[in-house]
């Protein structure tokens, strides 16, 4: 999996360089490739926060995400965001 990922990621990097030598891609392709990041990250957040195995569920981790997201919104350092989210979730589970 790691090697596949490494190869695939390098493919995009080198592919972009080769493409630049050969052709100018359309602005639409440009936009699509760079818009994939926000779209897929947002989808990933939703799935990790609400997917209870094929049903939408709100769990302790959903609350923890909310705490971490607020911290991120207020520009807390990345490590603080992770620790707050994990701590809030762990705390709720201990209750």
């Amino acid at each position: 999996m790691i090697l596949g990922l490494a190869g695939g990621c390098y493919f995009f990097k080198i592919g972009g360089l080769i493409a630049a030598d050969v052709t100018r891609p359309t602005p639409r392709l440009y936009r699509l490739l760079s818009d994939l990041t926000p779209a897929v990250l947002a989808g990933l957040i939703v799935v990790q926060a609400f997917d209870g195995g094929g049903t939408l569920e709100i769990g302790a981790n959903t609350a923890g995400l909310f705490v971490g997201a607020l911290a991120a919104w207020w520009r807390a350092p990345f490590a603080v965001v992770l620790v707050l989210a994990a701590a809030a979730t762990a705390g709720l589970r201990l209750l």
Partner: peptide, 21 residues
């Protein structure tokens, strides 16, 4: 200790990574 809340740490991290995009 972190692994108790890992399923919140990951999406919260993704949210922080999403903001600049």
């Amino acid at each position: 200790p972190l692994s108790w809340g890992l399923d919140a740490a990951f999406p919260a991290g993704f949210f922080a990574l999403l903001l600049p995009h």
